[in-house]
Amino acid sequence: MLKRTRSEVEPAADHGFFGPDSVAWRVWGYPTSLTVGFSRAVVVEELDPNLVASVDRTQDIYRRPRTRYDRTIRYFALVAFGDSRTTLQAADVLVKVHSKAIGVEPYGGGRYDANDPDSQLWILVTGWHSVLKAYEMYGPGKLSEAEEAQYWAECAVAAEMQTCDPADVPRSRAELHAYYERMRPVMSGSPIARRAMRHLMDVDQLVDAPLVLRPAQWVVGRFFRAGVIATLPHWMREMGDVRQPRVMDLAARPVLRATFAAVSTSKRLQLRVLGMLSPSTVPVVAPVLLGVPPVSPEVLTPAEARERHGFERPAEAHLAWRRQQHERVFGRGQAPSDAGLVESEEILGRLG
């Protein structure tokens, strides 16, 4: 059965930016990562007042939660596992998508821009940290000091797919904690942030189980939510008004560790679970999980890939287009163009 599954998987063009010897592949390839880890990431992101302002303005996480979740997981999976050309293509079009996520933050009154390097760094660091945190709590456990240093060095490579500076990425647990301490005064548990955080922990909205399986889905959903909350430090819980009895923190860990350990024994089961949450991500992850070799066994640096495939650094990409979007919104008071969002469907998945 596994051989037939492997024969149906289209191989990647290359190993992308990490490859089989990377810590990133080991951590992101464990079933905790694109489930609880990713859910934690999108929940924590909402504490950025500028980011949640753009999320709240579009209302997409409420109007089309499945497609929004699907497209976002696909992007993160592409960075970790995708071939170099497809990943750069996704990073490039995402700059255009983010160019429409601009406006005025409703509580502080300042302008926000989803391409802002500080917001992009927050998304990157909280994403990679959340995946690592889930791996530690519900997976094999903590990495060695050397492995963790490699993981954060690989996170800095991933930063080259965004508008932030790779030099700003923490390179150790101590630097990570220092980063959170610097960001803590900037974060905000606003009403729109709290609403978004509660909404994003509800896995039931993402899976349409048959009626006979709804009770089981309810139980899984409660443990999933408890598992996400259990990974959050108390200051994030207080800021986001996310409350949970300590007994649930304690109960979630052994249940989820056992569940993910069982899922990890079957790559086909792991892909099936991923397919329920993010169907468009399965073709990205399947070659890695099933050991399908790429057409070329290369691991490229972002600089090598950009030169080969002809892409600009995200921070320097589509500057004229971004200026046009700013003029439309801040200059003429019009809605931003959706052209980038439409263009992204071919790469990141359909909008609806």
Rank of each mutant, 00 (worst) to 15 (best):
A156W: 11
V186R: 14
A251R: 01
L319M: 11
L78V: 03
A77I: 08
V95H: 12
V295S: 06
Y151E: 02
F17C: 04
P245Y: 12
P185V: 09
F330C: 03
P166R: 07
T281K: 02
G103P: 04
L341I: 10
R26A: 14
G37I: 13
R237N: 04
R182N: 00
G16S: 08
E175I: 10
T67K: 06
V97F: 08
H98Y: 05
E147L: 05
K267G: 03
S188P: 01
R184E: 09
L176E: 07
V104E: 14
V207W: 08
D92Y: 09
G109E: 08
D165W: 05
S119G: 15
A80T: 12
A261H: 14
E345F: 07
G227V: 12
A286K: 08
T67D: 10
A178F: 10
E105G: 06
V23P: 05
A12T: 10
S39L: 06
Q325D: 04
R40Q: 14
F18K: 08
W218T: 10
V242I: 15
Q334D: 15
T265K: 15
R4S: 11
E345Y: 04
V9M: 04
G189N: 09
G29Q: 05
S296G: 01
Q217D: 02
A13C: 03
V263D: 07
P11G: 01
R171Y: 07
L269D: 09
K3G: 00
S54C: 10
Y69F: 14
R194L: 14
S188G: 05
L78T: 03
G333R: 02
Q59C: 08
P170E: 11
E147P: 02
L88V: 08
V295G: 00
E298V: 05
P166Q: 09
